[in-house]
Amino acid sequence: MTDHLPGRDTSLLLLGDHASAFVPPDIAIAPALLSLHIGVDIGAGPLTHALSASLDAPAILGTVSRLVIDLHRQSDHPGLIPTVSDGHAIPANIDADRAGRIARFHAPYHRAIRAQVRRDRPRLIVAIHSFTRQLETGDGPRPWEAGILYGRDDRAARIAIDFLCSRGIPTGDQQPYSGRLLNATLDRHADGQGIASLSVEIRNDLIADPAGVARWCAVLTEMIAAVRNGLALNAPLAQ
């Protein structure tokens, strides 16, 4: 299950692992949980749509809640189908049909990304996420407005962090969590293919309405352009 957005600039690919709060009717997850950050990356779907239009770039978005299956986890990850998330029990996931949900949701999403990457060979992949200002089971408020996450390859991330900091935006380097520990989608489809990438985390209260989405779309459109220009300048010269 994926949502494909078209774009003429296939040198860039946008991804939205947690863009949807949809739960199929045969899986009983409490509706109240689906408006929380544990059910969806609040604002990330609209922001990815806006960026796709602004940059004229293709995007692939997941279309199922992370409480059904987390598309941003390896298929063998213990948190793939969470039974507890930020202190909330998810009874429907106890003894869930793991193989069935992988086949139904996880595998098609990653097949779609793999096919797009093989066809277009983008030069940059950017994953769009959002994070909550404060976890219910956490210590205190998170001070960042944005975070840039990355795995082994930090070429794109360094440019992005410098750009956001130069604009006075409180920016986390591997915050609110480390991409070295959790970067499953980009590890598989970008780092694993030698493609530059980064994951952008925006604090979800800042993109919870159309005005916030428009503001951050403008910021990230410039940031992604800066990353692409920087990567081009730093590319090795042809021999």
Rank of each mutant, 00 (worst) to 15 (best):
V200I: 15
G140M: 06
G151Q: 07
I207F: 02
T83H: 03
I69P: 12
G212Y: 11
L51V: 09
H4C: 02
V23H: 04
R121F: 08
S20R: 06
A146M: 15
P82F: 01
A232H: 03
G39F: 02
P122D: 02
T137G: 02
A92I: 01
S166A: 15
G43P: 03
R142W: 00
A190W: 07
L206M: 14
G16F: 07
L186N: 11
D56N: 15
D76K: 06
A190L: 09
Q116R: 15
A226W: 01
A32T: 02
E201H: 04
V68E: 07
R101C: 14
L36R: 15
E145A: 14
G62V: 13
H4P: 00
I69R: 10
Y109S: 13
G194W: 05
L15E: 04
L135Q: 01
G230H: 04
L186C: 13
P108R: 07
A226G: 05
Q116W: 15
I29A: 10
M1L: 14
G100D: 09
V84M: 08
S52K: 09
S178G: 12
L182S: 11
P31A: 15
V213K: 12
D3F: 10
A89L: 03
I195H: 06
V23F: 08
E145F: 07
N93L: 09
Q175A: 15
F105L: 06
R152H: 10
A50Q: 01
R152E: 07
D17Q: 03
L5F: 13
A44L: 08
D56L: 12
V23P: 02
D205V: 09
I102R: 05
R123V: 06
G140C: 09
P6G: 10
E145K: 08
A157P: 05
A225S: 08
R123I: 05
I128N: 10
G212A: 13
A160E: 01
G147M: 08
P143R: 02
P210A: 15
L206F: 13
D154P: 15
G172L: 13
R228H: 00
R98W: 05
G39N: 03
